[in-house]
């Protein structure tokens, strides 16, 4: 029988824009067919579904301050759903459930210095907060953005990144793990942790906001530890397998010595002080 109160029925959203960011990553601009707004907070995610392929959790990369009612997803083609999405064209529709999860504490961060540390595709969720902060620039103090990629051609959002570099009210550094000889690259060459010592951190004021591949967190946290940044001033956005987005399916549970967390509800954004005792978190 048909059901009117399903938790699993996606709403239809149309692809209204599509832009290649790297050889395997695209930016999709989406609009709900029924005209409603996503009403997300920076750092939240949606379950993106393509009928016949399946669902996958994808963080929203656009800021709620920009481009509404449409919203943007930055998607790398690495799995079934993401590869299928890459084969789709402007005008086609996908399913969306959400937004889900706990995003960045944009209010709590007001009045403070911010240090964004993005590795690779980790720029996608951070961009939603970066643009939110830039659109409310007066509410925030100093802004530092560190962005690292494997190689220059993997840097995304070039126009926005060059804007960060131009602006006087942003400290921005970019790095690549390596740069082929024939490519012109003006930024640093080396891992992202090399950029952290150069940032002016005010231990009372600075909040670090970190997102990157799983392997990156440990090293970034070690570097922030050297700077003696208090752990409750560090926010991390974590990736996990999720099949529901609403705390039911059990996949995204993170076990700790004393308790356990669900990345889809307690996160995906976590305060480091909260999760540092969770052996499975980092």
């Amino acid at each position: 029988m048909e059901s009117n109160d399903s938790l699993f029925l996606p709403e239809q959203a149309r692809i209204i824009g599509e832009r290649e960011l790297t050889s395997n990553t695209k930016l999709f601009d989406l609009n709900f067919e029924n005209g409603k707004e996503l009403n997300h907070e920076p750092g939240q995610f949606v379950e993106l579904s393509i009928a016949g392929i399946g669902e996958a959790p994808i963080s929203v990369t656009s800021s709620p301050t920009r481009g509404t009612p449409s919203f943007e997803l930055c998607v790398r083609a690495v799995g079934n759903v993401t590869n299928a999405l890459h084969r789709m064209n402007v005008g086609e529709t996908v399913g969306i459930r959400g937004p889900f999860g706990t995003g960045f504490p944009a209010e709590e961060l007001k009045g403070h210095d911010l240090l964004f540390i993005a590795g690779g595709l980790g720029i996608a969720p951070l961009r939603s907060l970066i643009n939110y902060v830039l659109d409310n620039r007066d509410d925030y103090n100093e802004i530092n953005i560190l962005y690292g990629c494997k190689k220059p051609c993997e840097q995304m959002f070039e126009d926005e990144v060059s804007n960060w570099a131009r602006r006087q009210d942003i400290y921005h550094e970019a790095t690549v793990d390596y740069c082929p000889d024939e490519v012109c690259w003006e930024g640093n060459v080396g891992v992202i942790t090399e950029l952290i010592p150069g940032v002016d951190i005010d231990l009372d004021e600075t909040y670090a906001v970190v997102c990157g591949p799983p392997v990156m967190y440990k090293f970034v946290l070690q570097e922030l530890e050297k700077k003696e940044l208090p752990h409750d001033q560090i926010y991390l956005s974590l990736e996990r397998r999720m099949k529901c987005g609403i705390g039911e399916c059990g996949h995204c549970q993170i076990n700790g010595a004393e308790e356990e967390l669900y990345a889809c509800q307690d996160g995906p954004v976590f305060n480091y002080e909260r999760i540092k005792g969770f052996e499975e978190a980092i």
Partner: peptide, 12 residues
């Protein structure tokens, strides 16, 4: 669902 029309119906 119907993959041609992209139509989805909740079922219980």
């Amino acid at each position: 669902y119907n993959t041609n029309e992209g139509e989805m119906t909740a079922v219980n």
